[in-house]
Amino acid sequence: MSVSEFQARLKASSANGFDSQDFDLNLAPIIDCFTVLIAFVMISTAFASIGILDAGIAAGGDKAISAAIPPVRISVEVLADHRFNLKISGKENREITIPARGDSWDHGVLKIRLDEIKNRFPSVNGAVITAVNSVKYDSVIRTMEQIRTTFPAVMLGGL
């Protein structure tokens, strides 16, 4: 298209009122696209997010890991009758039994006892959790979650 032809077309369109800056943007197709997109994303989004709890094992494995030996080793045993058995061995050797609170395990008292141990031995960062065979996985996870607030490295024992 030559320049003169283009100018002629421009003049013609001006005459028809096409160069007006007062126009309405047609948003209806955009709304349509948004509706479809929102519906698709809502269907495919998982609102329950998955988390990961790190749990090495207290025994087993190919190679021995060289690390500084902690002053005490802490082991929490989840018993079937809603009791905890807290074992401390090393520089201090003792066993604490935490009785049941009604029909459930007393996580509050367990936390207090673990905090007491942590205050006495601040360099200790790990604990081992074991459970009797009949204890449900959910109870083990709840106890593990509680121990992790005081000792971040919780390992599964009794394998």
Binding site: I50, G51, L53, D54, A55, G60, G61, D62
Partner: peptide
């Protein structure tokens, strides 16, 4: 563990 898988990650539904 006996087959060399010693690093366990337990999947849970996050509550935080």
């Amino acid at each position: 563990a006996s087959n060399g898988y010693t690093d366990f990650k337990l999947a849970v539904v996050q509550t935080n």
